[in-house]
Simulated scan of single mutants.
Amino acid sequence: MTRARLQWNGEAVIRGTRAGAARGLRLGAEHVLQVSRGRAPIEEGTLERSGTATVDEDELRAAVAYDTPYAVRQHEEMDYRHDAGRTAKYLEGPMAEEADTVGEIIAAEMRRALR
């Protein structure tokens, strides 16, 4: 009879998985930020430069935001004219369009953490 011994390192696995998820969230948020910056209306570049990506590692939540007094108005005003490639909904569009890519980024980082 052959015997096998299994050692379960559950706590280490959970820590690694959370760390991988947090890294994946950060990379995913940075990806969305990069895509949205390419679409943000541009006059002087202030709006584009104000974009940030943050991650709350305790809650495993990520956020992408733009911080100018007119960021929301530029995002929501569909009647404004913009330069070619620049548009209203400069954040909402990339968030929806890049969701699968962000999911793949997070999954890849979690897999990497479990190696």
Rank of each mutant, 00 (worst) to 15 (best):
A96H: 06
L91V: 02
A53F: 07
R18F: 03
E59V: 12
E48S: 08
D56S: 06
L47S: 04
G20D: 01
H31M: 05
E92P: 00
L6Q: 08
E11T: 09
E59G: 13
P94T: 07
R81L: 11
L25H: 03
R15T: 11
T17D: 04
E76M: 09
Y70C: 13
E104T: 07
R81P: 03
I106A: 07
E30W: 11
R111P: 07
M110I: 11
R3C: 13
T54E: 12
S36W: 01
A40W: 00
E92L: 11
M110K: 05
E109H: 09
S36Y: 00
T52Y: 06
W8M: 12
A107Y: 05
E48Q: 10
E59S: 14
M95L: 14
T52H: 09
A40F: 05
T46L: 13
R49H: 11
A21Y: 07
R86A: 01
G93Y: 09
V72R: 12
A88R: 03
A40K: 01
T54I: 12
G93D: 10
W8C: 13
A12I: 10
G24A: 06
E109V: 08
Q7L: 15
R39H: 03
E44H: 13
L91E: 00
R23G: 08
A22Y: 04
K89F: 13
V35C: 06
L91G: 02
A4E: 12
A99E: 15
L27A: 12
Y70E: 13
Q34H: 05
K89L: 09
L27K: 15
E30S: 13
A113C: 09
A113M: 07
Y80M: 13
R86S: 01
S36Q: 03
R73V: 15
S36E: 04
A53T: 08
A29F: 03
H75W: 02
V55E: 02
A96E: 10
T87N: 02
A19C: 09
M1I: 08
L25W: 03
M78H: 15
A113V: 03
A88W: 05
T101R: 06
A65Y: 07
R86M: 01
H82T: 00
A4R: 14
Y66G: 00
A108S: 14
A65I: 10
